[in-house]
Design a protein around this nucleic acid. Sequence first.
DNA 1: GCCATATGGAAAG
DNA 2: TTTCCCTATGGCA
Length: 266
Amino acid sequence: MPEGHVVHRQAKEITKLFGQQVLHVDSPQGRFSESAALVTGATLTKATAQGKHLFIGFDNDLHIHVHLGLYGKWAFHSQTPDPVGLIRLRLISDSMTAELRGPNACAIVTNSEKKTLMAKIGPDPIAGNSPKKSREKVLGSSTAIGTLLMDQRLFAGVGNIYRAEVLFRHQVNPFLPGRELDPSYFDAMWEDLRVLMKRGVRTGRIDTVRPEHEPRSMKRAAREDPHGGEVYVYRRDGRECYVCGSEIQIAQLQGRNLFWCPKCQR
DNA sequence: GCCATATGGAAAG
DNA sequence: TTTCCCTATGGCA
């Protein structure tokens, strides 16, 4: 259940563990068997990420396109365990096995199909893409900034946690229409996402709380809600804001939980 | 065992 | 805006 930082991390991991190796690819669950046959025996060249999309490239010009969605997970083993549960896809080298469960998307694509998919994904702060077009669209939009931040054509890789946290860190109300956002705030939030998400690639966690705001109880709080990291507002509804003490609010926005501090983000 | 929930997104209505 | 898909897990009976 990742945001973009996790997918970038996994791309690096897969390249490191399986790059330049001839792989056995299969599908214990069966749903990817025919596709697996197209790349099994081929050499994995490189895995790359754009936003939350992962592309695993092979030397026969085919790629496995993976999107984890809400439930998807990779697991890595130094042996090949007997399959447990529903494993859509396995990558097996001489020394390593990767297992993929529950992906939203898992399909073989050609070079041109990959290109088409890539064109639909917006600029990714981690990839260092220019936010110029996103900036124009956001600053001209009547849609709430909290909704725009989840739009993968505008902010590829940003998910529900980074959305909530970057809005808090810049004291922006999630319901503010994009066109009412001061342009300097767009720039600051993009830069902040770039820094936070790149840190997330290194650490595998989402940590957004500035040192001066860390309460003594934070380590305990992070343990109680182990989504991986220390955050200001994500899933902290009903609890006290670390900055002002107000009760963190929760609401549904486009079917997703949105968290914010009513006082800090007015 | 059953139910709710989850860092997502496409398709249907 | 709602429904549906994909899977595992934790809380509760």
